[in-house]
């Protein structure tokens, strides 16, 4: 274990993840280029490369966007989330290469500066058919650059998780821009319905899964336990909580994870300090609450990470009466020790 700064904190899981990712990308490019040469033997190498890189980035973007909701809907997908940022950076590199080759192929051989040419070669914004779709790609690339450049714990720590997450929520804007970049660009001249159907299906899957996950979260947020006097409020039954796991309740405007372990009950904020992962969906491993997203750990009784780590989350006063768990509605400052409530036999 180490708390020293490293550009990438490599471990076995990340290496396996990245190896599979790299192999998948190379395999995709090889298959796309081979199939392209077979179906279109007269296609130029530049065109084939532009298409292979562009579609590769689009496929990866779809994968990235469905991993989040899949994990919210089924915990078996969590391993995919673990190193998703490397997938995001890879997607940006593919998109950047696609853009670079396209600028070179279509804009670099004239008298005008190629980048100026991209921005000014078409200004027919009033027409859908002749819309300058390149601009949409440029804007998406700028967003993807911001996201790729901040895909590191350095930025996560310094921007704070909420700001970082708000920044990375721009991916939905980038997704919309890219879909329209393809629709108003490539699909305008494409006569085969296959690609149109594939892109439409991809959009349905991404938006459908995102809506399903958002709806699940909304239902959880609606189960609010309210109390304005900072009293203990009934949160759940002891029997509702699986051993070494948590029941999530919405209290004082935010989610609280009520954990049961070793005959005791503790309540902490549901929000991990790393990437705001849902601690209540994690488990107690080796005596520590473990975030299901990236494995950050906290002691249940004081919400502090075990030394040498320094992360702290708010704790809540808790008591058990007649098999019911009561939690005080206002949180204690992060890292405050709270005596766990004992579960008495028969309760």
């Amino acid at each position: 274990m180490s708390v020293g700064y490293r550009a990438v904190g490599w471990n076995r899981q990340k290496k396996i993840y990245d190896a599979i990712l790299l192999a998948g990308v190379l395999l995709y490019l090889a298959v796309f280029i081979s199939a392209g040469l077979i179906w279109h033997p007269n296609i130029t190498a530049e065109t084939l490369l532009i298409r292979a890189l562009g579609t590769g980035a689009l496929v990866l973007l779809h994968l990235i966007l469905i991993i989040g909701p899949l994990c919210r809907l089924d915990a078996r997908f969590l391993p995919l989330l673990y190193n998703r940022r490397h997938m995001g950076v890879t997607m940006f590199v593919l998109a950047l290469a696609h853009g670079a080759f396209a600028v070179f192929q279509f804009h670099a051989l004239g008298n005008l500066n190629p980048f100026l040419s991209v921005l000014t070669s078409s200004t027919n914004y009033a027409s859908l058919t002749n819309f300058p779709f390149e601009i949409l790609g440029v804007l998406a690339l700028v967003i993807l650059f911001l996201m790729a450049a901040t895909s590191h714990d350095f930025w996560l720590v310094n921007l704070t998780a909420p700001v970082w997450k708000a920044l990375h929520m721009m991916v939905y804007g980038a997704y919309a821009l890219i879909i329209m970049h393809v629709t108003l660009g490539f699909l305008q001249a494409e006569t085969s319905p296959i690609l149109t159907i594939l892109i439409g299906a991809g959009m349905v899957v991404v938006l459908g899964l995102q809506l399903l996950a958002a709806n699940k979260e909304r239902k959880l947020d609606q189960r609010v336990v309210t109390d304005s006097k900072n009293n203990f409020v009934a949160a759940c039954s002891v029997d509702d909580i699986p051993e070494n796991c948590a029941q999530i309740v919405t209290l004082a405007g935010e989610r609280v994870a009520v954990f049961k372990y070793d005959g005791r009950i503790s309540a902490v904020s549901n929000v991990c300090q790393h990437q705001n992962g849902p601690l209540g969906e994690g488990m107690i491993i080796n005596g520590c609450i473990t975030c299901p997203w990236h494995g950050y750990q906290y002691l249940p009784e004081n919400g502090s990470s075990p030394p040498p780590f320094t992360e702290k989350i708010p704790t809540f006063d808790v008591k058990v009466e007649n098999g019911r768990v009561f939690v005080r509605s206002c949180p204690n400052p992060p890292g405050t020790f709270v005596e766990p409530a004992r579960i008495v036999c028969g309760q």
């Binding site: 274990m1 180490s2 708390v3 020293g4 700064y5 490293r6 990438v8 904190g9 490599w10 471990n11 076995r12 899981q13 990340k14 915990a75 969590l78 391993p79 673990y82 714990d153 350095f154 720590v157 994690g282 488990m283 491993i285 080796n286 520590c288 473990t290 299901p292 997203w293 990236h294 494995g295 950050y296 750990q297 780590f309």
Partner: peptide, 15 residues
């Protein structure tokens, strides 16, 4: 999954 991640991710945090 959680255990594996817990054992690995802590090693990547920065000072």
């Amino acid at each position: 999954v959680g255990k594996t991640l817990a054992q690995t991710e802590h090693s990547s945090r920065r000072k």
